[in-house]
Simulated scan of single mutants.
Amino acid sequence: MSGRSSDQERFEAGMIVRREVLSDAHVDAANEKITELTADFQDFITRTAWGDVWSRPGLDRRSRSIAVITSLIAHGHHEELAMHLRAGLRNGLTVDEIKEVILQSAIYSGVPAANTAFRIAQQVFTEA
């Protein structure tokens, strides 16, 4: 073998990280919604996003959460933002640190994007 992980090994590693970052409850709920249409996509994101990228040693999970939150704010991916705000807390970010990330994003992604992010963060943090 060339030292590269098999698809199954990448999937298994990805599922471990996905569960650690997002929670068992979130992943179980997502898995219950898998259909024939979405099965290949779910396999793809588990292997690539979680098994390949989130599993890399170059950044810790707190740093990865900061990068993801910033990107989601910039691109207006609100549903994913709520999920990754929860993940950021699970990865050790504080509410104050997330507030600073959102403030920073106001400069580079725009005030409307940050305004929406603060609204979503308020909902997420009220739930927590």
Rank of each mutant, 00 (worst) to 15 (best):
G51E: 12
H84K: 05
D43Q: 09
W54R: 10
Q42N: 14
T38R: 00
R64A: 13
R86K: 13
E79S: 11
T35C: 03
I16C: 06
L72T: 08
A67F: 11
I16R: 14
G3A: 13
I98C: 05
Q123A: 15
F41K: 03
Q8M: 07
R64I: 10
H84I: 08
S55V: 08
F41C: 06
E36I: 01
V21F: 01
F11E: 04
S105E: 08
G110V: 00
V17T: 13
H26P: 00
E32F: 00
R47E: 11
V95P: 00
I120W: 05
V68Y: 03
L22K: 00
N31C: 05
N31Q: 13
I66Y: 10
T70F: 08
F11A: 02
L37K: 00
G51T: 07
A39T: 05
L93E: 02
S55P: 12
W54C: 12
E9C: 09
T70G: 14
G58F: 14
G110W: 03
E32Y: 01
E20V: 02
V101H: 01
V124H: 03
V27Y: 01
E100D: 12
D40G: 06
Q8H: 10
E79L: 11
V21L: 04
T126R: 13
T116K: 08
F41S: 04
A87S: 14
A117G: 04
V68F: 05
Y108D: 04
E20T: 06
L85R: 02
S55T: 11
E9I: 06
I34K: 06
M15I: 02
H75Y: 09
L22E: 06
I120G: 01
L81M: 09
I16F: 10
H75W: 07
A74H: 10
S2M: 11
K33V: 08
M1E: 09
D60N: 14
T70C: 10
T48E: 15
A74T: 11
A117C: 03
W54A: 12
R56N: 13
L89D: 09
A82L: 03
P112T: 02
E32V: 00
G76R: 04
D40W: 00
F41E: 05
D40I: 01
L89V: 10
D60L: 07
I66A: 15
R18M: 04
V95L: 07
F125M: 13
A114Q: 05
R10Q: 14
M1I: 13
R61L: 14
V111W: 11
I98G: 02
S2A: 15
V17W: 07
T46N: 09
G76D: 07
